[in-house]
Amino acid sequence: MKRRTFITGAFIGTAALALGVNLYSESTLSSQAKDGQRVLFSILIPVFLDGALPAVASQKELAINSTVDAIEQAIAVLPEQQQIELAELFELLESRLGLLILTGSVTSLMLRDSAELTRILEHWRFHFLEMVQTAYTGLRELVLTSYYSNPEHWGRLGYAKPTFLLNEA
């Protein structure tokens, strides 16, 4: 089996974030891989952001979609090595063998309910192998920072940037 560099290295960081500005015109990910990645995050975002996402279904869907967009942009500004590590994790999570190793079942993540997804995240979060924990911390930071980078998601925080420069634009 091909050695996965993310297993020895790790991954993403503060995911910095953020987004808004796409600094790389080309990503190392193919468009097919990007589609898979979007599906993966659309499944994980409601779990990571349970309690933070809007309750109204249409608004919730909008928030999830804009966060998936922000995640894509965040990944695009990461250094090449981290992009490679992430791409390998996504690939692993889409393969039956990878799913079996990381989640204990070959069932696609799309077919798991939220309780099962939470159980998987908890399993990774407190896993004895640092490489699995790294998958958790990397995905966690990517999702949470991408969501909270968007001013539209600051309503529950009571946070807004000062307005003294707004007339300048």
Partner: peptide
């Protein structure tokens, strides 16, 4: 706004980590 400051002004978009993260 952090979403513009981090990619524009920080090393590795403020996502830089040590080897073991």
């Amino acid at each position: 706004e952090e979403r513009h400051a981090y990619p524009n002004l920080y090393q590795q978009a403020a996502a830089m980590k040590t080897t073991d993260k």
